[in-house]
Simulated assay, not measured.
Amino acid sequence: MLTVNTVNTTTKMVTGKTKAAAVVTIKAGTKVIGTGTADSKGNYKATIKVQKKGTTLQVSVKDKAGNVSAARAVKVV
Rank of each mutant, 00 (worst) to 15 (best):
M1S: 12
T3Y: 10
T3G: 12
V4R: 05
V4I: 05
V4M: 03
V4F: 09
N5P: 06
N5R: 10
T6S: 05
N8F: 01
T10L: 09
T10D: 14
T11R: 03
K12Y: 02
M13Y: 02
T15Y: 05
G16H: 11
G16K: 12
G16P: 06
G16R: 11
G16F: 09
G16V: 07
K17R: 11
K19M: 14
K19S: 14
K19W: 08
A20E: 08
A21G: 06
A21Y: 15
A22I: 02
V23Y: 01
V23L: 07
V23S: 07
V24I: 15
V24M: 05
I26T: 01
I26S: 03
K27Y: 07
K27Q: 00
K27I: 00
A28I: 09
A28Y: 11
V32Q: 11
I33Y: 07
I33G: 02
T35K: 15
T35F: 11
T37A: 08
A38F: 11
D39A: 06
S40R: 06
K41D: 15
K41M: 11
N43I: 10
N43R: 14
Y44Q: 04
A46K: 06
A46H: 11
A46Y: 03
T47F: 12
I48H: 10
K49P: 02
K49S: 13
V50Q: 15
V50N: 12
K52H: 00
T55M: 02
T55K: 07
T56K: 13
T56A: 08
L57M: 09
L57T: 06
Q58Y: 13
Q58H: 11
Q58D: 11
V59Y: 06
V61R: 10
V61N: 07
K62I: 13
D63Y: 00
D63E: 08
A65M: 09
A65L: 10
V68Y: 04
V68S: 07
A70P: 01
A71E: 04
R72N: 13
A73V: 08
K75M: 09
K75G: 07
K75N: 03
V76G: 14
V76A: 02
V76K: 05
V77W: 07
V77A: 14
